[in-house]
Amino acid sequence: MLGLLLPWCGATLRAAGDADVAAAWELVARHLPTDAQARLGATTGGGREAAFAAAVVLLDRPPVTDAKLTTAAAQLADLARGDDEIAAAAGYLEARLYQAHFFSPDPARAARAYAALAARQPHSPWAQLGLVKLALLRLYVLPEPASPAARVAAAEALLAQVEIPALQRDLHLVLGRGRLFFQLPGVLPHLLAADRIGGLAGTVRSDLQLQIAELSRRAGEPAQARRYFKAFLAENEVDPRVYTVRARLAEMAGKEGTP
């Protein structure tokens, strides 16, 4: 009898624990870390998922201090030792702590953590997202390589490893913007690749449309410029740049009409 009851109790407790952790994740997703912590405090099970949620709450709940972040980083490092999805997510978040959360970031350590995660679980979405962040570090933050062209090349080398289309798109955006920032040629192919993958919305999408249109205009590709300017106008009735875009189209039409 006891042999039947014990597994049943264990399964029930696990289910209750999972429900509590899911509720806590809901609260974290709504930016309510204090409520999430209270929910996790009442959890009777949950295992690695609960431990991961607790670490996330720790880094999100104000006041955020370096001491709390250090504790969270240790917990995440511990969780990252496994080979499941939680390990990948924890590894990614540990790298994020060193990249953006500590008051004195450690970009070199973050870059190593992203690279290690990509080597360990190359197909995990967390590792793939980490590669996009690694590209940012290589482009702008890490001391080596020193020259802009070499920085861009080092970041572009990551493209081959990114398989998820939305993240490929983001990496193309990073690379296009990087080339533009360092005034290197080859901006438009990246921006066009990002647009081909699609899926952007809101101001990010309208910014990309205008960027492609305007840079195409400057590069002497009026047909492409016109196509993107018109796409922008079709989708953006209240953007304050509408008048400027109409003026650009009128200028282009005027120039084309001039013998």
Binding site: V21, A22, W25, E26, V28, H31, V56, A89, L93
Partner: peptide, 15 residues
């Protein structure tokens, strides 16, 4: 703050 939300959405997917 976005990192926590991203982690939470991943957690909800798992559970």
């Amino acid at each position: 703050g976005v990192d926590a939300e991203i982690a939470a959405l991943g957690g909800l997917d798992r559970l």
